[in-house]
Every structure is written in structure tokens, then in C-alpha cells.
Design a protein around this nucleic acid. Sequence first.
DNA 1: ACCTGAACACCGTTCAAGT
DNA 2: ACCTGAACACCGTTCAAGT
Lengths: 239, 239
Amino acid sequence: MSSQASSPERGAGGSARREADGSARRAADGSAKRALTRGDVLDAAAAIVKEQGPRALTMRKLAAELGTAVTSIYWHVGNREELLDALVERTVADLGEIRAQGRSPATRIVSVTRALRAQLRGHPHLVAMVHERGLTERMFQPATQALVHEVHAAGLRGTQAAEVVRSLLFQVVGFVLVERNRERAPVQYPGDESLWDEATAEHDPALAKGLAAPPDPERLFLLSVRAMVEGLLGTRPRA
Amino acid sequence: MSSQASSPERGAGGSARREADGSARRAADGSAKRALTRGDVLDAAAAIVKEQGPRALTMRKLAAELGTAVTSIYWHVGNREELLDALVERTVADLGEIRAQGRSPATRIVSVTRALRAQLRGHPHLVAMVHERGLTERMFQPATQALVHEVHAAGLRGTQAAEVVRSLLFQVVGFVLVERNRERAPVQYPGDESLWDEATAEHDPALAKGLAAPPDPERLFLLSVRAMVEGLLGTRPRA
DNA sequence: ACCTGAACACCGTTCAAGT
DNA sequence: ACCTGAACACCGTTCAAGT
């Protein structure tokens, strides 16, 4: 409920920011000690979340990191939930534009999905946090915008265009989520071998191998997105 | 670390279970009091998770619900994390088979994705919990199995078949996730209207409306899956 | 305007002790 | 074999009090 309207670090577009990593206020060193700002809190919180996930972000740990009393944080950001809200908000705002590349609409659409996937992979915990806060639509706004443009260029309009855009967004999100799951837990239970033995794979060893471990997610991503674009537009995109 | 091997309620296939809703041990009523079993704990935990989400499942609340001391629970399930593990494990095991319907492979594939979506929607918190535990592959095993069969029937083999199966799974998961997000947070911030005004929708009001609120997720789901199947198989599925 | 420590209600978990 | 209360370390949050 604290109506802080500072909104620090809006940047000049979104890509380059890294210098101002709250290195100013270190108290543990005994060095110079500035006044704590809302931006400091967000920076420190962002660092913890990025490295250890949102679960590891406790108010007390954050305070220790900043060299302040726990209660000071509350003055600047309200409470933990509002802190996470602000963090997500800032990260989403800093994601930057998505630019299509290529000549044909189909190719340009594929390039947008690739850019979106790259963004999502760059912020491993962001998707879940955005999801919890009901900001999904907003987070995908830039990508949606770009897709709208390309779908229009492909000649689609109205409801049909909207459905194509949404199908593509869902595809990317689903892919990244499952992909990340595999990265985090490479060895599944009860283990891939037993899950895809000869019988369950219907005597198709190459298929069993393909399902047990996707050797090239990049390739799989391109393939599925291209299939989807082809099915939706009736045009085959080119590499 | 407690090696309890009871594994209650494995059922006779998976669909019908509902009678044994831990109504036996009610202590608050002052009625008859059986010995607490691992199954009781899992049942009560499942009820809480189903109604209020995994976050609301605290050991103390669970104990109160069961009419026991908190520490009794630990004897039966180890700790909170193992409790959730067991819960997910049991739920996944009880999900049941997925049967394809229809004549052509393309149509049957679509029917499998619909069944999978219905399963996921029936357990709103399951996907996230499974995801956290790295059990995604296992959870989708029945659906994958069914898809493998149909893709084989469509004449695909090996790596190509595996890629088709995976693309479809990703599509379904992504769809359900985003769909659920919209249900939970119907009013987005900063609001759909402002997000899709005339300019951002490139002067296509029907598209703006389509993106602001998907009137029929069922329809959108079918459309996108069919497009994907068509793009992957080169065959158009029929309703 | 900003920061502080004390205090509260709530967690998960351990452990010695009961039956 | 099962259950218990006491106790520990950790949470988020509030509040009166400082400067």
C-alpha cells in the first residue's frame, strides 16, 4: 500500500544495464554508506532471485545483503509480495523490443518466436513469477505486437489473425517450460531408459532415443514452430 | 528418509475412487478414532491442495485437520517435501489411460491432445508440482504412449516421429498453462482495453477483440492443434 | 523522511519421552 | 510400532520509538 512513485532505472531502451549493481552500500566492508533507495532494494532482490530463485528471497537475507535492518526494507517496498511485484514489473519493462527478421512473413514470424524464446531463457524464473501475478498477457505484449504485424503482412485479419497469434505464443511458452524442466532435472524418475524400452516405443529404437533425450532443442523448436506456421498460414517458412 | 512401503489406494485402474475420503478419523466430532495411516495423511493433504493449492498445505493445518499432533505426520510421511512428492506420485499414477478416438491418425492424434488437456484441467495445481519435481516426462507418459502409436499409424518413424510427438505435447502444455493463467486472473493489468487499443491492433478491431478475450478456448485449442498436426503430418484432421 | 530493535504469530523440523 | 509436547531456528510483519 506504500505509494512509492520513484520507478528507478527505466533505462534508455532496455538492453544495456549492468554497471549499477548495488555495490554502493556495502556495510560489511565498513566502506562508504549511502542512503538506502528503493532501487538498491530491487537490485539486491533481483540478484538473489536470479541466482537462487524467488524462494530464496527472504526479507532477512535481503536485509543482511544490504546491510540494513529488516524493517527498513518495508519502508521502501511495502512488503515481500509488493517487492516481488515491483521486481517482475521492472524486469518485464526491461525486456526490450522484439524485432522480426527475414523476408517472407512466415520466416519473420519464426524469427519472432525465436527471439521470444531467447528472452524467456534469459530469465529462468520470470515466467513462473509473471504467471503467478496474472501478468502473462502483459509480458508477451511486445512479442504479440510483433506477431500481429507479421500475421497482418501475411494477409490474415480479425479473429483468424488473433487465433494464429495466440497459437504461436502458446507454443513458445509450452516449449520453454518443458525445455527448462528437462534442464533442471536431467535424470528423470524412474529414468528414461526404463520409460522408453523397446516395447513402449513400439520397436522403434530411433524414436525411443529421440524421446529419451532431445539432442538439439534448438532444432526441435524450429521444427515445431515451422510446422505450426505452415499449418496456420498454409505457407512453408524457409531457414 | 523414512522407508514406508505401504502405497495405499492403488485402485483397480484409476477412474473410480472417491468413497474413502478420510472421513474415518474425525477427532473434532468426538466420534470413533482409528489409527492414523499414511493413506489418511495423503487424503487430507490432497484435499487441502486441491481446494487451496500446495502453498496452503502446512503441517500444522494438516495435523489439525486430522486431529493429530503435528509430529505424528512426520512419522508417516517423513517431511513436507516427501509428503508432496508422494501426493504427486499418487495423483499421476491415478490419472488413468488416454485412449484415442476417431478413424484417421490425424483425428485420433487430436483426440489424444484433447484428453490430455482435460486431464490437466482436472488437476489445476498438478502441472506446476510435477514440474518442480522433474516428473514431467513421467506424467506425460500415457499421452506420449498414445501419441507414439498414432504417429506410427500415420507412417512416421524414428527421430521424425519423436519430434512430432514432442511438438504436440509442448503445444498442449503451453496452452493449458496460459489458459489457466487467464482463468485465475481474468482482469489483467493494465487491462486488456488499454493493451489492445486501435493503434496497437493495427486498426483491426476484430483482432483486438480476439486478443483481449478468447471467447472459446475449446475452439482455439482445436484450431491450433489441428494446424500443428496438419503442418507436421501434411494431413488435415477432420472433426 | 528514513531507520531501528523488540515483539507477535506463524512456519518446518528434531528429539527425548511416552504407550 | 505409533503418538506426544517441548524446543529450536527460521519466517513475514507490525509498531512504537528514535534521528
